[in-house]
Structures are given as structure tokens and as C-alpha cells.
Amino acid sequence: MKITLRIWRQPDRDAAGAMATYEVDGISPDMSFLEMLDVLNEELALAGGDPVAFDHDCREGICGMCSLVINGLAHGPEALTTACQLYMRHFTDGQVIDVEPWRATPFPVLKDLVVDRGALDRIVAAGGYISAPTGAAPEAHSVPVPRKDAERAFDAAACIGCGACVAACPNGSASLFLGAKITHLGALPQGQPERDARALAMVEQHDAEGFGGCSQIGECTAVCPAGIPLDMISQLNHDVLAALPRGKDQRG
């Protein structure tokens, strides 16, 4: 296959960027999208050029590091698939493919296709946990968890933290990411004591980072490689609105 790539190039955080066009030949349909970029980078390096910087690590769809907007879609055209698990067989010979970084004000571009997603970590640090000092944990079977709740918690906890939801959201909101964590921890009995405080602290951090609000458009769930459903944003809304009028914060 022969592919024409139009890729966002930006030397560093403060520099201006632009799309650059590259041709790659000899692409096998069995290559992953990132392997195709590897081929391009090998060619660029040998030709004395600057290889395209892009984030990737596990290349099996679980670490959440890869972050490419391919033809305007976060992680590309395949549903429930990260860019690293996207294969070239889903493209056609001669196709022009646009590759851009996640775009959102809280995700500044560091270089080319690499962005800083530290904002998501800070949202977790604000309250996305259950306080359980090591050694203080009670026997695991002391609190049974209804299977339904455990499954719901898992469905939410499957979020890989890639930030595709933000990249796809017309409002630049991280509500799906936020909703997934609030749903995960809020579905479990262990998560109840801090439930209100968690919701408030996390939503406050989310807004402080500069993410937009959710207007229930649903593009986030459409691109989410982990299949986090839209109702988890509603869970977030529920928990925040329920916590707002309640008295003192439990984490005080």
C-alpha cells in the first residue's frame, strides 16, 4: 500500500505548528497504524530528517499512551480501538490520512503529536481514590459486594485514561474520564465514605484544569476505546448535585 500522510509538526510547546505531507510506500495491511509511522520515521531518520514524535508504549491497547487524531477522529475510524490496535487494512491504497494530536487547551502539545495529559492525573490526585493506608485493610471478605455493583465498577474502571474523550468532545470536556472514576469508586461499598467529597473535589479540579462542561453529545463514548458509556457522566452529575447541598465534607 501507498499512503499519503498529512501530519501535524510542531517543534516544541511554544513553537507554531503546521501540517506536513509525507508519502510512505510499501505499507502492509497487517501493519498497525503505529508500525506504519515507525516505517515513516525510519525513512525520515535515514534521510536526515526529524522523525515524528508520537506517544505510544504498550501497543496492545491498555496503557492509554497513544493519542492520535486520525482523519479527525480520536484513535481513528475503528470503534473500541486505540490507535495502536488500528491496522492499515482499514485504509485503502493511495489514501490521504490526516494525523493530528489530541487538541484541548488543558492538553498542550509538547512536540508534534505528543501532548501533556498531566491534567488527568491531577484530577485523580484531587480525589480519585479510596483512602486505604497499606496495612489498614480489613479482610477482603468482610464486605461482600453485590456482583452487579462489582461489574458496574469494573465497567467504569476499564477506562485507560487516554483522553480520547477530551479530544473528541466539542466542548473539550473530560467528563467521561471523570464520570468513569466517580462511577467506579462510587459503585463499591468501600467508596461510600468519601463519595461526596470525591465528586466535589474531582469536579472542581476538572474545571480548574480548564476542561469544558458536558452537553451530552456523546462523541466521547463513540471514540472511547474502553467502551465507557455516557450514563457514567450522568452518574457524575448525580453524585455532584447530590453532594452539593449536603453539609460538611467527610474528608475534612
Binding site: A197, L200, A201, V203, E204, H206, G213, A243
Partner: peptide
């Protein structure tokens, strides 16, 4: 920080959407 969080949570996008 808790009071601050609460105050700001009142004006959060989530609350405004509500």
C-alpha cells in the same frame, strides 16, 4: 481546600448544567 472545593463546585460546569 475542602471549603474551596465546595465553593467552586457550586459554580462547576456540572452544577451549571444542572
Amino acid at each position: 481546600a475542602v471549603t474551596a472545593a465546595r465553593r467552586r463546585a457550586t459554580g462547576s460546569s456540572t452544577a451549571l448544567h444542572g
